[in-house]
Amino acid sequence: MDQWFTANLGDAMLAGEDLERVCALFERRHGRNATTAVLMRHENQGRLHCELVLYFPPELADLAAAVGAHVCGQPGLPGLGVAIGSPQRLSELTDA
Rank of each mutant, 00 (worst) to 15 (best):
A34H: 07
E92H: 15
G85I: 00
R29D: 08
N8K: 02
A69Q: 14
G73V: 09
W4M: 06
S91R: 02
A83G: 14
A69H: 02
E17R: 02
G46Y: 13
V38Q: 10
Q74M: 15
P87Q: 05
R21V: 06
F26P: 04
H49Y: 14
P78I: 10
L19T: 00
G73Y: 13
E59D: 13
N44G: 00
C50Q: 07
T36P: 00
G73D: 08
Q45E: 12
E51W: 11
A15T: 04
L52Y: 03
L52F: 04
R47N: 10
G85A: 01
C72V: 13
D62K: 12
E51Y: 11
A12R: 07
R32K: 15
G79I: 09
R47A: 07
H30A: 07
V67E: 13
Y55W: 02
L14N: 10
Q45S: 09
Q3F: 06
Q3E: 05
L25S: 12
G85C: 05
A66K: 12
D62W: 04
A61R: 10
R28T: 02
V22S: 00
A65H: 12
H42W: 02
V38N: 03
L93S: 13
I84M: 04
A12L: 00
S91H: 04
C72A: 15
R89Y: 08
V22T: 01
D11W: 02
E20M: 04
S86I: 01
R29Q: 02
L39V: 12
G31L: 00
A34K: 11
D2Y: 05
L63E: 05
Q74I: 11
P57T: 01
G10E: 03
A96R: 08
M13Y: 15
R32C: 06
E20F: 03
L93Q: 12
